[in-house]
Amino acid sequence: MSSNSPVNLRVLVIIASTRPGRLGPAIADWFVRAVRSDAGSDATTVDVADLADIALPLLDEPEHPASGSYQHEHTRRWSRTVAAADAFVVVTPEYNFGMPAVLKNAFDFLYHEWAWKPVAFVSYGNTSAGTRSVQMAKQVVTTLRMMPIGATVALRIADNVHDDRVTGSAALDGAARAVLGELSRVARALRPLRAGTDPTAVAGPVPGLTLGEARPGDLAELLVLQRCCWVQEAIANDTLDLAPLRETLGDLTASLTTWRWWCVRRDGRLVAAVRARADERAWLIGRLMVAPDQAGNGIGSWLLSYAEGQAPAQTTHCTLFTGHRSTSNISRYERAGYTLVTTADTPPGSVRLAKPRADQPTSAVGHGVGVG
Rank of each mutant, 00 (worst) to 15 (best):
R260W: 03
S123T: 10
R215P: 07
C228Q: 15
E247A: 12
N160G: 04
A336D: 09
R287V: 02
D198H: 00
T362F: 02
A55M: 06
L12Q: 08
D50T: 05
P292W: 03
L180S: 10
Y70T: 10
H64K: 10
D86Q: 04
D218T: 04
N126E: 13
R325D: 05
L270W: 09
R287P: 15
V82P: 13
V179P: 15
R33Y: 03
T342S: 15
V134Q: 03
T315K: 02
W262C: 00
G368Q: 11
L23C: 01
Q314V: 10
G250N: 12
T319D: 14
P361L: 07
T342W: 08
E233K: 02
A282F: 01
S169M: 08
I157F: 01
S69Y: 12
F109C: 13
G250F: 06
A158I: 12
M289Y: 10
C318D: 11
V91L: 08
A276Y: 04
P348I: 07
D218P: 03
A43W: 00
A154S: 12
H324A: 09
D173P: 15
P65Y: 01
D293R: 11
I330G: 01
P347W: 05
V186S: 11
R269H: 11
Y338D: 10
S255K: 12
P292A: 03
R36K: 10
A344N: 14
P148I: 00
T239Q: 05
T362P: 07
T327H: 08
C228T: 15
P348T: 01
M99N: 01
V369L: 12
S79D: 14
L155Y: 06
R325K: 09
W114Q: 08
A34K: 06
A201C: 03
A52Y: 05
L58K: 09
P62I: 03
L180F: 05
D238T: 00
R80F: 04
V231K: 13
R357V: 04
T339S: 13
T44V: 14
D279Y: 02
S69I: 14
A282I: 07
A28P: 00
V369Y: 11
V341K: 13
D38V: 01
G40W: 05
P6C: 02
A106D: 15
L219N: 12
